[in-house]
């Protein structure tokens, strides 16, 4: 069973994955150590690959190809969370953001295993296998960098302080969420957010990192209220492709 509104959910997830994958690949050739250069290039490919899975599912329903959606759509039509659009920052911010994203993915995808939508169930099972490795890697980095030296602690704490409220923006309600929840397609985002908070807390605590106390989720992305960072990113992403619109590259 599919509901007529699953497209918006698919696009939100696809846009998140594409944009974060794009950001991660900004480390390719510029990482602190070769091993992380390889790791983040790998994570970037996985995330972009996941975007492709969701865009392909979207294509089956809406008829527009992944390349059309990613490379021809205006930036202000993207529905990714603002969280994934911010510049890559220092390596601490990148690590924290990726860890937060990995946990969010895990929480969301697990909830899909019981979805009424077959495409969500089967895609989630597939993606969860790769996500397990991401989480292993990024959680390991959080645990090793979180309290290693004074500088690493300071940077990682700054990363947590900046990224925490942004990450909660991943759980901004979709405009048509009520219908999706009623149809058994998805768990309400507010519940997923709660699971996410519970999942990241012990990891942060284990290395004495603390989430900010007063915070408001950095929402807006799902309603296409974006910041100039996304405009720049999408302009770059599409710049060569648009030289010959509809052309073969």
């Amino acid at each position: 069973m599919t509901t007529p509104t699953i497209e918006s959910l698919l696009l939100a997830m696809a846009d998140d994955e594409l944009v974060l994958g794009h950001r991660n690949a900004e480390w390719t050739g510029h990482s602190p150590i070769l091993e992380e250069d390889i790791a983040f290039s790998n994570i970037a490919q996985d995330e972009i690959g996941h975007a492709l899975i969701w865009y392909t599912a979207y294509e089956k329903l809406a008829g527009r190809s992944p390349d059309q959606m990613a490379f021809e759509r205006p930036w202000n039509e993207f529905t990714c969370a603002r969280f994934v659009t911010y510049p890559k920052g220092d390596f601490a911010y990148t690590v924290v953001r990726q860890f937060f994203f990995d946990v969010a993915e895990e929480v969301r995808l697990r909830s899909f295993l019981a979805s009424s939508s077959e495409v969500l169930r089967s895609s989630a099972a597939k993606i969860l296998k790769e996500e397990a490795y991401h989480r292993l890697h990024t959680q390991g980095l959080v645990e090793r960098l979180g309290d290693a030296t004074e500088e690493s602690r300071r940077r990682m704490q700054a990363g947590v302080t900046a990224a925490y409220a942004q990450a909660l923006g991943l759980f901004e309600a979709l405009p048509d969420e009520a219908v999706l929840v009623a149809g058994g397609v998805m768990t309400p985002n507010i519940e997923l957010a709660r699971s996410w908070i519970e999942a990241v807390a012990p990891v942060l605590r284990s290395v004495s990192l603390t989430p900010p106390v007063a915070l408001t989720a950095d929402a807006g992305g799902r309603r296409k209220k974006h910041l100039p960072d996304l405009e720049q990113l999408v302009t770059d992403l599409q710049s060569v492709y648009r030289l010959v619109p509809g052309g073969a590259w």
């Binding site: 794009h22 690949a25 900004e26 390719t28 050739g29 070769l34 250069d37 390889i38 290039s41 790998n42 970037a44 490919q45 972009i48 690959g49 975007a51 492709l52 992944p66 390349d67 990613a70 490379f71 990113l233 770059d236 992403l237 710049s239 060569v240 492709y241 030289l243 590259w249």
Partner: peptide, 20 residues
Amino acid sequence: PFAPGFRRKLTLIAKVQDEA
């Protein structure tokens, strides 16, 4: 960042990753 299309973007990241 500018690679045109999914296939080119993915293969280029993979390639540069191989160099590392």
